[in-house]
């Protein structure tokens, strides 16, 4: 590991100042830096110019705007995990943020950084797919709002120009009729990168047993997080029971293309994806029966 004595860092005074600097120079942006600093020390990233946006307080907030919840990208994962609004209106995101790593990491790492690092096993991303989130990005004098599924374009690739910053994450607040769950499979408890992760959002309509709408997102199983559209169709307009859960969770295999790596073979991942989806659907079923 190397000492970063020759890396230059600029710290902008404001978002406007940051966007101004990015017009003139090509930077690697760092927020919490819990991944970027490691990559720099290990030499896998060789950037010599960093833009440190960590201290831009204006990008650190959680607020409600009518039916939406808006999150500033520099909100730390521990702030997300502890947030009353997120626990009420997007509980699966709070769950994912809390378990992403150690207390030390979640106190520093940010949600925008988890998105901008674009790992297919970034734990905040499946919940954002399941919440149908939108990513707001800004450049100097420009602003775009991108649906999360369009934002990620390939393995560690996303639709963000060199002069743009992620400036907000936004999604519709969940209502009483909706429920959600996040689960991940790791090789040990805590402090471990996800092998497979699942986030599920369902809408039960008027408290009926039938599921009106569902979104199932899977992490670590393809170049990007993916939606399990076939499984979603199989649970929609159906009474969830053991048989339906088995059919729907087995169908996730049609949406994924897992690779083999240090954390598991593709077959192992495929099987874990089915099992994890099944156990999440069971949990949602159990909760709906308790509430009836």
């Amino acid at each position: 590991m190397v000492t970063l004595y020759d890396v230059d860092v600029e710290t902008p005074r404001s978002l406007e100042d940051a966007l101004e600097k990015m017009e003139a120079t090509r930077f690697r942006v760092i927020a919490g830096g819990t991944d970027v600093i490691i990559q720099l020390k290990e030499g896998t990233l060789r950037e010599k110019k960093l833009l440190n946006i960590y201290s831009l307080g204006e990008l650190r907030y959680i607020r409600q705007e009518r039916e939406n919840l808006c999150i500033g990208p520099l909100t730390t994962l521990s702030e997300i995990a502890a947030s009353r609004e997120i626990n009420e209106f997007a509980p699966m995101l709070a769950q994912a943020a809390e378990k992403i790593g150690s207390i030390q990491i979640t106190n520093k790492a940010t949600i925008g950084g988890n998105i901008g690092n674009a790992s297919p096993s970034g734990d905040c991303i499946p919940p954002l797919y399941a919440l149908d989130a939108r990513i707001v990005v800004k450049g100097k004098g420009s602003k775009r709002e991108i649906h999360i599924e369009d934002f990620f374009t390939g393995y560690k690739e996303f639709d963000l120009r060199p002069n743009e910053l992620i400036t907000e994450i936004t999604f519709k607040k969940m209502t009483q009729e909706e429920d959600s769950i996040f689960a991940k499979h790791t090789l040990r408890l805590g402090e471990a990168c996800s092998v497979v992760s699942v986030a599920i959002w369902i809408n039960r309509g008027n408290r009926r047993a039938e599921i009106v709408d569902a979104r199932i997102a899977l992490g670590g199983l393809a170049p990007t997080v993916v939606r399990a559209h076939k499984s979603e169709k199989l649970v929609k307009h159906e009474l969830l029971d053991q048989n339906r859960i088995t059919i729907a969770s087995e169908a996730v295999t049609s949406s994924i293309s897992p690779i083999s790596d240090v954390r598991g073979t593709s077959d192992y991942r495929r099987e874990m994806a089915v099992n994890l989806t099944g156990s999440c659907l069971y949990e949602l079923l159990a909760r709906s029966q308790e509430n009836r």
Partner: peptide, 8 residues
């Protein structure tokens, strides 16, 4: 609590 090794 944060890791001093990741704080520039």
């Amino acid at each position: 609590a944060v890791n001093a090794c990741l704080m520039i």
